[in-house]
């Protein structure tokens, strides 16, 4: 059942020899050694495993590899440009928006997808944009503020 599967991850083509039915999350973490996306439920219920699929935040724990050939896959590892952080990352650090941090991948990826579509979201829209991602530490209010700050940062850099 092992086959060649071609995945485009963070701008690079990879040919992996795996069972094509493997959910994307496993080769990302194991074969490609990307620790950003996390395993939380494997059921598309918690958002720990969020990645960008053609720019949209989606869970990676159930989507099979074979269904993602030809899709541009991006993980949190690709957001920064060398030392230069994405404004979302800067905002999370500035506001210290994390406790254990296990959910942070899902939050950052969801924020990325949201701000790309809607650079000026109202708080309710931010909440909606992060709704799929669970946080057990209760860091929610800081995440909302961080996304708001990121939006401001992006505005001031594009002006």
């Amino acid at each position: 059942m092992i086959k060649d599967v071609r995945l485009n991850v963070n701008g690079k083509e990879h040919t992996l020899q795996i069972d094509p039915a493997t959910p994307l999350l496993y080769p990302l973490r194991n074969e490609l050694e990307l620790n950003g996306p996390k395993f939380g439920c494997g059921l598309e219920q918690c958002g720990s495993c969020m990645v960008l699929l053609d720019g949209m935040a989606e869970p990676s724990c159930m989507r099979t590899c074979s269904s993602l050939e030809g899709v541009e896959i991006r993980t949190i590892e690709s957001l920064a440009d060398g030392e230069k952080l994405d404004p979302i990352q800067e905002a999370f650090i500035e506001l210290q928006a994390a406790q254990c941090g296990y959910c942070v991948n899902g939050m950052v990826i969801s924020a990325k997808s949201l701000l790309e579509k809607n650079p000026n979201p109202a708080d309710e829209e931010i909440k909606e944009g992060l709704q799929r991602v669970l946080c057990r530490c209760g860091t929610h209010s800081r995440f909302i503020k961080a996304v708001r700050l990121a939006a401001e940062k992006m505005k001031s850099t594009t002006l």
Partner: peptide
């Protein structure tokens, strides 16, 4: 500031 937050937001934690 906590140093580990940089690692968290870049997927390095």
């Amino acid at each position: 500031p906590r140093e580990d937050i940089l690692a968290m937001v870049t997927g390095k934690s």
